[in-house]
């Protein structure tokens, strides 16, 4: 029991981070599932984090309501900026959302209420492990249901071929806005959980680098299923820790591993179709033996 207590004391922060990153990766998975390459999710996370932290610090709202507000605030922003920007596709959408992320970061950096570059200090540590597990599980369940729903099939059709989707009677603009906004809700929740588990938040945590990190986690894990993003988030969070023994070479090796994965497994680590083929190949070989 004591061993566990020691382990928990040392690694709980890391485990919290894995959970929050998994939630972020799932938020981007949702956006990508509709074919939208968005770099706005780090900013949505920031909006959620700041909204939640300010509500706790100044208005002393109860934590569940704080979490709800943390998810809702970026959703409202997503609805407003989504209508004009989602007409863009591919790289152009990535650029527009990137610009939005920078505007958000600079705004937070210069506002008085957000504490400027110093950020917000003394946020009560209200996030417990079961908050993260519960929200992650709920998000995973909701996304799994969504995938099989009418809306999920519409997302898939839009991602595969927008023109074909239109011809089948799918409201492409409406669904894109829905995917973008729902992704913002999940990112905002991750932000709210994060703010209440780290004591301190600053604009630096929600910038361009984080947007790319979220994208890397999701793509590295693979977007063919929900397992991929969670796996990607786990690996990318743990890898720098596991490579600690390499000291100065740590980040270089980290980068090399990523390049290797992208080169040799372009559909991500967890590709359900490829894994299915491998399983079948194995089984036939097994049964083929005398």
């Amino acid at each position: 029991m004591e061993a566990f207590a020691d382990f928990w004391a040392t690694y709980s922060t890391l485990i919290f981070t894995v959970g929050i990153h998994a939630l972020l990766a799932l938020s981007l998975w949702l956006t990508l599932s509709c074919g939208l390459l968005s770099l706005a999710n780090a900013a949505f996370m920031g909006i959620g984090a700041y909204t939640a932290a300010l509500l706790t610090l100044h208005l002393h709202w109860p934590f569940p309501m704080v979490l709800a507000a943390g998810g809702l605030a970026p959703a409202v922003v997503a609805l407003v900026i989504g209508a004009p920007t989602l007409r863009l596709s591919g790289v152009y959408l990535a650029m527009a959302t990137l610009a939005f992320g920078e505007v958000t970061r600079i705004l937070v950096l210069n506002l008085e209420i957000t504490g400027g570059p110093e950020g917000l200090n003394g946020i009560p540590l209200l996030t417990t492990w079961w908050h993260i597990v519960l929200i992650l599980a709920a998000a995973g369940y909701a996304l799994a249901r969504l995938r099989r729903s009418r809306m999920g099939r519409a997302f898939e059709a839009i991602r595969e071929d927008e023109v074909a989707a239109r011809m089948m009677g799918i409201d492409v603009e409406g669904h894109k806005l829905a995917a973008f906004t729902l992704g913002a809700v999940l990112a905002g929740l991750a932000g709210a959980l994060n703010a209440h588990s780290t004591f301190f938040i600053s604009p630096r945590e929600y910038g361009f680098e984080n947007a790319v990190d979220i994208l890397t986690m999701t793509i590295l894990g693979g977007i063919s299923s929900l397992i991929g993003p969670v796996l990607g988030a786990t690996i990318l969070t743990l890898l720098p820790e596991l490579l600690r023994f390499l000291h100065a070479y740590r980040l270089a090796v980290n980068g090399l591993i990523l390049i290797g994965v992208v080169l040799f497994l372009p559909t991500g680590l967890w590709d359900s179709r490829r894994l299915g083929q491998m399983l079948r190949a194995w089984r036939t070989r097994w049964e083929g033996k005398p």
């Binding site: 099939r153 898939e156 059709a157 595969e160 071929d161 023109v163 074909a164 239109r166 011809m167 089948m168 009677g169 799918i170 409201d171 492409v172 603009e173």
Partner: peptide, 28 residues
């Protein structure tokens, strides 16, 4: 009208170049 509104009224186009979703199954 927007394409999805037109489809709902009963006009459906089969596109040139077929525009089927190649990564989905025939049934899907």
């Amino acid at each position: 009208l927007a394409p999805h509104q037109i489809v709902r009224r009963g006009i459906v186009q089969v596109a040139e170049g077929r525009a089927i979703l190649t990564t989905l199954t025939v049934r899907e």
